[in-house]
Design a protein around this nucleic acid. Structure first.
Length: 580
RNA sequence: GCGCUCGUAGCUCAGCUGGAUAGAGCAUCGGACUUCUAAUCCGACGGUCAGUGGUUCGAAUCCACUCGAGCGCGCCA
């Protein structure tokens, strides 16, 4: 359920009844438990408008709130706060709806469903995926899962870099010194080798460079042989990428990449020129913002144009992006388009979106920007030799560290895990830790990657949540029930049970807020609070040793916790093993 | 030069539609395992919210300036 939203509605009704004004009630959780569970602050800001003493206004609001069964205590305090204490029986009754909601576990189903396209991951063909792709991939995947859970119709697109000038070098390089066997064996490594050698050769050997340009021109003109070889590059790379995605548990609805828009590019430029927005300058074609009526203020002051065609007639990625924007708007019929891309491209997207709007694009685009992954010294994460760390080596490292911690735990008798399950659990914990470490942080800021912190497995980290789930799952193992069975009356008399219930009752709004604001860290924050509340409950309120109605109540709270943890982790793309 | 993002506890970060004594994790210190799994729990310590001024009954949050950091800025993606 959405506890705060529910209470806010009740409070707004009370404020309206008390003052005649339909204004936000300013409901907030209290900072200090001595002030109750929630407070309504509207009286303070209404004082000026109503020309009344804020305490007096608070008094009349409190009067209304005392009639609401959700609260057992309503008090005016300080300069005009209205402090509210939840009626536990009411909360128990409300939470029962979530207990019975086996389909959604309390996640609200939005009435205004939208068609959303999410553009994420987008690696280049013929290159290893590296840490630079990590955030986009797991952030995009989590957002898709969250938005779908809320009822939106979502299409995940991998806008791969499968077209461009590098293919001239690759085609020529492959023919002159490529190794067909190596290309089949480990395609990306071979393509990277070829590309490196070819670009070096092109600098030293003008004839080679000329051949590469000719092959590129032939490819773009539709030469069959070149297209076949290019397709081989794409397909073999794709197979290798698929292995990384499978490991991450990430899937796409579409792999429509740059090459798919190739034929649209001349038309896109024509359309921009025809509308009077783009013009020629020094042989190139672009949009000069100070000249554009209706352009956003900031862009009006920008001297640099948004170029969509180079002076040699070639197109740029701005052109491709514009073509993709049109396609997603008119062909896919998107209401919203999310671009999960590095913050450094903010200016590019600002211009792309502004131009799209001026050209009549109806879909609402958002740049879901995120910061750079830094090392412990605050520099962009690289290997010792200055190369970007590959994604698979990073995952290998995480899983290896998880495995050694698991083996340690088993040796110390602290973890109970069958040896045959170690591989699987290490994979789930290691990869879950990588994902959680990223998702738990506000995506806008850069984030410092720290192996020790991430794999310390203590506190606010993925394994903590997985451990909480494994603990609760073990109870149901022993009880011989599934986490979907118990649906008994709740008794929230004990503090730990009440605290847990309050957290459980906010799961729905945590998912909703994470989706609405495209910030998965709002969900990780909530899940951590939930796991923590459960751990306290677990220590304070034994379940299997309890009896009668009390045991049933505790079992039901534990069951709902397990369901929300499993589903919540699932929305982040993190597995929850039943044993660890 | 123009623009964007950001400075919160020793470290890594939440909080920023303005509300009571600024939160969490890690680290440090002290307690709790013949266990429903101690990757846990309970407690303690720790902050002039970069600085200055302003708006307000009230500012970490809004505005201005200063200092400091990162990033982006015509034919790469």
């Amino acid at each position: 359920m959405q506890l705060e939203k529910t209470l806010e509605t009740l409070a707004q009704d009370a404020v309206r009844a008390a003052t005649g004004l339909d204004v936000p009630p300013q409901l907030r959780p209290t900072a200090d438990p001595a002030h109750g569970d929630y407070q309504v602050n509207a009286a303070l800001s209404l004082a000026k408008e109503l020309k009344k003493n804020p305490r007096e206004i608070a008094g009349t609001i409190a009067e209304e709130l005392r009639r609401v069964p959700a609260f057992c205590r309503v008090e005016v305090a300080g300069p005009g706060f209205v402090n509210l204490t939840l009626e536990r029986a009411w909360l128990a009754e409300q939470l029962r709806r979530d207990v019975l909601d086996l389909e959604h576990d309390g996640i609200p189903q939005l009435s205004s469903k939208e068609r959303i396209v999410v553009d994420f991951s987008s690696p280049n063909i013929a290159k290893q995926m590296h840490v630079g792709h990590l955030r986009s991939t797991i952030l995009g995947d989590a957002l898709i899962r969250i938005l779908r859970a809320l009822g939106h119709e979502v299409t995940g697109v991998n806008h791969i870099g499968d077209w461009g000038t590098q293919y001239g070098l690759l085609l020529t390089g492959m023919r002159e010194f490529g190794d067909a066997a190596a290309l089949s064996e480990s395609p990306i490594a071979e393509l990277e080798r070829i590309y490196k050698a070819a670009s070096q050769r092109a600098k030293e050997d003008e004839a080679f460079a000329e051949r590469a340009r000719a092959e590129l021109a032939a490819l773009q003109a539709g030469n069959e042989e070149n297209l076949a070889l290019w397709r081989r590059f794409v397909d073999t790379t794709r197979a290798e990428l698929d292995r990384v995605y499978a490991r991450l548990g990430v899937t796409f609805d579409s792999w429509r990449g740059e090459s798919a828009y190739n034929d649209d590019l001349p038309g896109v430029v024509e359309r921009a020129i025809g509308s009077g927005l783009a013009r020629e300058d020094q042989g190139a074609i672009g949009v000069f913002w100070p000249e554009i009526e209706g352009a956003p203020d900031r862009l009006k002051k920008q001297a640099e144009p948004f170029l969509i065609r180079k002076k040699d007639g070639a197109f740029l990625y701005a052109t491709t992006d514009l073509a993709a924007l049109f396609y997603r708007d008119s062909v896919l019929g998107a209401d919203e388009i999310l671009y999960v891309v590095d913050a450094r491209q903010a200016n590019h997207f600002e211009q792309l979106f502004a131009l799209g709007a001026l050209l009549g694009v109806r879909a609402k685009p958002h740049h879901i920007s995120f910061g750079t992954i830094l090392d412990e010294n605050g520099k962009p994460l690289k290997t010792r030799d200055g190369v970007a760390v590959t994604l698979s080596s990073l995952l290998d490292e995480a899983v290896a560290r998880a495995r050694s911690r698991i083996e340690e735990g088993i040796a110390e008798g602290k973890l109970r895990l069958d040896p045959s399950a170690i591989d699987d659990v290490a994979e789930a914990v290691g990869i879950g830790a990588v994902k959680y470490a990223d998702l738990r942080q506000n995506r806008r800021s850069d984030y410092q990657f720290d192996w020790d912190k991430m794999v310390s497995f203590q506190g606010n980290a993925g394994p903590y949540l997985q451990y909480a789930y494994a603990r609760v799952a073990a109870i149901f193992d022993k009880a011989g029930e599934t986490i979907r069975e118990p649906n008994h009356e709740l008794d929230l008399g004990e503090e730990a049970a009440f605290e847990l219930a309050k957290t459980l009752a906010r799961f729905g709004e945590a998912v909703e807020a994470a989706g609405r604001t495209h910030q998965p860290h709002l969900l990780t924050d909530h899940l951590f609070a939930l796991a923590k509340a459960f751990m306290s409950f677990y220590e304070a309120c034994p379940i299997l040793k309890a009896e009668g109605a009390l045991q049933k109540s505790r079992l039901t709270l534990a069951a709902l916790t397990a369901r929300q943890l499993e589903r919540g982790l699932g929305l982040l793309g993190i597995r929850a093993p039943a044993r660890m």
